[in-house]
Design a binder for these strands. Structure first.
Length: 85
DNA sequence: CGTATGACGTGCA
DNA sequence: GTGCACGCCATAC
């Protein structure tokens, strides 16, 4: 099995319940390297897998960050899912 | 194999 | 409160 860092990130992100969000740092730590948050962003940026709700991953500051389809779309989806800080 | 990149995080002015 | 610069890791080319 290709349990590379990327595979773990996908699995972790896919495990995020609707209405909840995770920070890049948190995902990186769960993936095995808390300092790999930079890689997590790069991986998710290249990820276009619909099975992975990458829009539920935000920055540690609580800001949205970015999204493949556009950060605005990301915020929109989060609000629709019930994410209201 | 080596270089360049990026959806980050933190610190300092 | 805002903006700039550095450092860090994995991936892609």
């Amino acid at each position: 099995m290709d349990f590379s860092f990327r595979e773990r990130v996908y699995k972790i992100v896919a495990a995020i319940p609707q209405g909840q969000v995770r920070t890049y740092k948190q995902v990186a730590q769960l993936a095995g390297n808390e300092r790999a948050y930079r890689a997590v962003g790069s991986i998710l940026h290249k990820n276009t897998n619909p099975n992975v709700p990458c829009h539920r991953v935000i920055r540690s500051d609580g800001t949205i960050g970015g999204y493949n389809k556009g950060a605005k779309e990301k915020v929109k989806i989060l609000q629709q899912e019930g994410y209201v800080p």
